[in-house]
Design a protein around this nucleic acid. Sequence first.
DNA 1: CAGAATTCCAACCGCACAGTTGGAATCACG
DNA 2: CGTGATTCCAACTGTGCGGTTGGAATTCTG
Lengths: 206, 206
Amino acid sequence: MAWDTTRTRRLLLEAAVEEFAEHGPQGARVDRVAVRAGVNKERIYQYFGGKRQLFTAVLEAELAKVAAAVPLTGAHLTDLGEYAGRVFDYHCAHPHFLRLLTWEGLERGRAEVAAEDERAAHYAGKVAAFAAAQEEGLITGESDPAHLVYAVYALATWWFTAPQVVRMITAGVGGDGPEARRAGLVRLVRRLTTPDDRTGGHRSHA
Amino acid sequence: MAWDTTRTRRLLLEAAVEEFAEHGPQGARVDRVAVRAGVNKERIYQYFGGKRQLFTAVLEAELAKVAAAVPLTGAHLTDLGEYAGRVFDYHCAHPHFLRLLTWEGLERGRAEVAAEDERAAHYAGKVAAFAAAQEEGLITGESDPAHLVYAVYALATWWFTAPQVVRMITAGVGGDGPEARRAGLVRLVRRLTTPDDRTGGHRSHA
DNA sequence: CAGAATTCCAACCGCACAGTTGGAATCACG
DNA sequence: CGTGATTCCAACTGTGCGGTTGGAATTCTG
């Protein structure tokens, strides 16, 4: 059989996504990644350098995916509830990502993270879009645009970040499940971001 | 010197809180806990049983602390923004807890967690209080009470759960810091929970 | 104060696991 | 087809770390 280096690399990365998402950077086992990929573990060191760098590669790959899958289009700025719903849908379908992101937050903490500049620019773009929408009166001007971005992501993702807590909070909700949560989320974000009736335009949050 | 078993136990638990909050259940080292506590590590196995049980003990101790420190009084139901602010303040002052909770969520996932029944009752109480406040028209009836509880905690805590993301989102905020974040949070929660002007009483969210 | 029970520790054990090595199979090039 | 470079793997290594052991110091009991 011919060598297929891109395939080998891909198999390792895919296996690593699973392994790291499941067990985290500390709990992940290099041997398990190799077995999952059906490749000798020594390949990991040749292709990626080591366990730590493999985690970085995994994170960067998943970051690129999510950024591409859930863009913030102009249309969403008139209904951020639906945007939050889309974000929720993505994480529902791809639960790996938020686990990886959460682990990154816990372990790297305040230090510089992978793809720092790209990611900073990405979020700056969101904040700028929100600010512009505020100027146009599409969303409330009563909060700092960055805080609105914060709220949308916090509300859309906390389901997955603290699942054990959410399970207890929603224990009494009749028909709790992804659909009910999504609907509740959309409602929350709409109430939070819709401009106040009384004012048509921008209002300072200072 | 006389034996002081409660002191030894306390020293171990305090050291373990630090160690687990810093490194997580996987990254934590039993030897380091012992050194921090100034106690032989064998004591850990006599007092707690092992690393895993020590983590459980740490979590239960911290859960009790936070539940006692930030109660939801009747007065807060007229201003949930301020309640969210109190929750934020606690986690600002005691950043250990949310790290431990997040790690629990990642590792235990959907399985049963420590003090399951107590915690479930605790959250059920919050939801019931929110529902009662809705009936009285103190907070909006447009969302399921459980979803409002969800929103309050999500907004109050996500700062600490995804610090690297928050750092990038708020990079452009002038004077970003704990005070600015707290103020923004209070404003968000107030807008989210204040009853709609048009209706004095309860409105179904069905 | 004898001796049983408890608290504590220094030293040890075994293995799981990140990373390495030496060499076999495959490819690229003339 | 021959020679050097590349991809791959089985087997190995060193050690970090969870957990244990044997026994010394201290306290309890009678």
